[in-house]
């Protein structure tokens, strides 16, 4: 079993549209949506939820007003400015428990925090593991790790060949969590200065964790000078360009129809994504 995670650094470069198309093209796979803050893959795959689980993670401090003597020690030790007027702001609280440990009146308790849900669903393309982190919650990295672990279990149980993960934007906690131990990172970029800058940073993360990477330039014809710049940068880094996908309105049209673009159109975008998937499977050594 091999796992490819689709990342980009910059948001909105086309990760989910590409993963949705891979879902339609790949045989024998499980899909994992690792963007647990703003999960969109379900809009293309239209899953039927089979299992829904709670994600309990971390704790939040709670001050019992009756016991509190207003000595102020909790406010003094809290480094997250989460306590004001002897009340805890649950959004700022990082659940470290420092206040709970030091409170001389034993007025503080730590309460378990329901920070989201995760799901195993059926789609017409195969199983999908996805999640929904609660609004303004922490621990997205742990939820991503859980999604990947469940995707792996599904793939093992059903003897599937691939895990295809739709990753989050950025380079921090949830990205590192979706990347570590994967067989390949497919980095989707666009020919804009922001796209190039963000690609360099996410590629740095792949190097840092020793994950092989391939690059796909989406909407490459929007600025061909920048596309050439990305190509020469990747050449210098020894990173292959797996595909150059042209800009085409059919991608948005397909999205509005709730369909992977490869099922919606026979334009060149579709052929490019088909070739891209073949390149990815080759790189995965299948």
């Amino acid at each position: 079993m091999k796992e490819v995670v689709v990342l980009s650094g910059k948001g909105g470069t086309g990760k989910t549209s590409i993963v949705g198309s891979f879902a339609a093209l790949a045989k024998s796979k499980v899909l994992a949506d690792c963007d647990v803050d703003a999960a969109d893959l379900y809009l293309l795959l239209r899953p039927l939820t089979q299992q829904k689980h709670e994600f309990w993670s971390g704790q939040v401090a709670f001050i019992d007003e009756e016991k509190c003597t207003q000595c102020g020690l909790c406010q003094e030790v809290c480094r997250f400015q989460a306590i004001e007027d002897f009340r805890v702001d649950p959004v700022s609280c990082e659940g470290c428990g420092f206040c709970y440990q030091v409170c001389p009146a034993e007025a503080i308790t730590m309460r378990e925090n329901l920070s989201g849900h995760w799901f195993i669903s059926d789609t017409r393309y195969g199983p999908l593991v996805h999640a929904r982190l609660g609004i303004a919650q922490e621990n997205s990295g742990r939820l991503v790790a859980l999604v990947r672990q469940q995707a792996k279990l599904s793939a093992e149980k059903q003897g599937l060949d691939y895990i295809i993960s739709d990753g989050p934007p950025g380079i921090g906690c949830p990205v590192i969590s979706s990347l570590s131990g994967a067989n390949l990172a497919l980095l989707v970029t666009e020919p804009t200065l922001s796209g190039i800058h963000d690609l360099e940073r996410v590629l740095g993360v792949c190097h840092h964790f020793g994950i092989p990477a391939l690059v796909c330039i989406n909407k490459y014809d929007l600025n061909e000078d920048n596309t050439r710049q990305i190509e020469s940068y990747c050449l210098g880094q020894g990173i292959g360009i797996a595909s150059k996908i042209p800009f085409d309105d059919v991608v948005t049209e397909a999205l509005v129809q709730g369909l992977p673009v490869v099922e919606y159109s026979q334009h060149s975008v579709t052929h490019e994504i088909e070739t891209l998937w073949q390149t990815v499977t080759k790189a995965l050594g299948a």
Partner: peptide, 30 residues
């Protein structure tokens, strides 16, 4: 940054107003 978790909360907290930039697609709406 994009998203709705802790980095976004830290960035937005304390603002007088928040502009939400989106695009007219199902992803944008979601």
């Amino acid at each position: 940054s994009p998203g709705t978790s802790c980095p976004v909360v830290d960035a937005v907290k304390g603002s007088d107003f928040c502009l939400l930039v989106t695009e007219p697609t199902p992803f944008g709406l979601n």
